[in-house]
């Protein structure tokens, strides 16, 4: 299929922020003379996302993630650049675009507060004009996968966070959207519910070819759900690649943690100098960062043990979280 799910070119969004002096005097002054400061939330983003891709869209708070997603969803109008979701301009043809997208926005509910979950689903079925039999088939599947059976007759306001999030997720996928935006879908949830949710996203996306854009602070979400990572920093994309590539780039990075016998001092064997880097540590342990490619763990350990009184040691493979932190520091660009 040649058509892209999401195509973004030179996307820019600015906000006017009203500035005022502190205190009551400042507030009164602001009534008459308004000073604005322009803040560029998104500074020229290009994106091409293929149908069925699952993209982790990450960055610090204020990096421009939700602003981008709001533009992808048609809620905000770009100041410059273009957005197309399956060929549709989301802002110009908002309602047409709305039919092909689904969304979960962490804190806000898509469901209807006072009415039971089942009725909420029914209403969404009508809103999206889902054929009745297709709807029933989908709901049955979701009930099983997300264990919703016991929740169906409970009003949404009475659900716990984990229960609510499972229902939200079902609601977002109910009309079989082509693209789903998930903003922090696992925030504050127990580990087993997180697992259920991640498995659900993977399964549905595989089955229907749903394109998923996932923003999260939980790197486990990215690792288990996504096949591509885009890192945003201060309104710019600083990294965009397959998740395997990201892992491979740092794949050979290892850290050796060493604890010595009491009273002995550490000596770096001459054979390894230049090939390892000693990291600053707060406690007694010594940490050596090295590249698995340049020197194997086995060789390094042999050298260390030969000239030190080692009590304990372990090799650590960096986690996703550390990889991302590395990205921010080194500013690797795609």
């Amino acid at each position: 299929m040649s058509q892209l799910a999401i195509e973004v070119k030179g996307l820019v969004k600015q906000y006017k922020i009203m500035e005022r002096d502190a205190g009551l005097k400042g507030a009164i002054k602001a009534l008459f003379t308004r000073k604005y400061r322009i803040k560029e939330a998104v500074k020229g983003i290009d994106l091409s996302i293929a149908p069925g891709e699952r993209v982790g869209y990450i960055g610090f708070n204020g990096a421009g993630k939700s602003t981008t997603i709001k533009m992808l969803a048609g809620v905000l109008r770009p100041d410059a650049g273009s957005v197309h979701v399956y060929g549709i301009d989301p802002h110009e043809e908002r309602i047409k675009n709305a039919r092909q997208i689904g969304a979960v926005f962490g804190q806000r509910t898509q469901l209807f507060w006072d009415i039971p979950v089942r009725e909420s689903f029914d209403l969404l079925c009508e809103i999206y004009e889902v054929p009745r039999d297709e709807f029933q088939e989908t709901v049955a599947w979701f009930i099983e996968r997300l264990q919703l059976e016991s929740l169906l007759d409970v009003p949404v306001r009475q659900l716990s966070l984990g229960q609510k999030m499972r229902c939200e997720l079902a609601a977002a996928f109910l009309h079989r959207p082509r693209v789903v935006y998930l903003d922090e879908p696992t925030i504050g949830l127990d580990i087993d519910i997180k697992e259920t949710i991640r498995a659900f996203i993977r399964e549905i996306s595989d089955a229907w070819g749903t394109t998923v854009i996932l923003t999260t602070h939980d790197m486990q979400d990215i690792e288990e759900v996504c096949d591509r990572v885009i890192v945003l920093d201060e309104g710019r994309i600083i990294y965009d690649d397959r998740i395997e590539t990201l892992k491979q780039t740092f794949n050979n990075e290892r850290t050796l943690e060493i604890t010595l016998d009491e009273g002995s001092t550490f000596e770096l064997p001459p054979a390894v100098t230049g090939r390892v880097m000693r990291l600053e540590t707060e406690d007694e342990t010594i940490q050596l960062a090295f590249n698995h490619h340049e020197i194997s763990s086995g060789q390094l350990i042999r050298e260390i043990v030969n000239c030190n009184q080692v009590k304990d040691l372990s090799v650590v493979v960096p986690k996703m979280e550390a990889l991302i932190r590395n990205l921010y520091k080194s500013g690797v660009s795609a």
Binding site: F105, R108, I127
Partner: peptide, 11 residues
């Protein structure tokens, strides 16, 4: 921000 949710529906 409820309006965002409303704007994302085809109605």
């Amino acid at each position: 921000g409820n309006l965002d949710r409303i704007l994302m529906r085809p109605v």
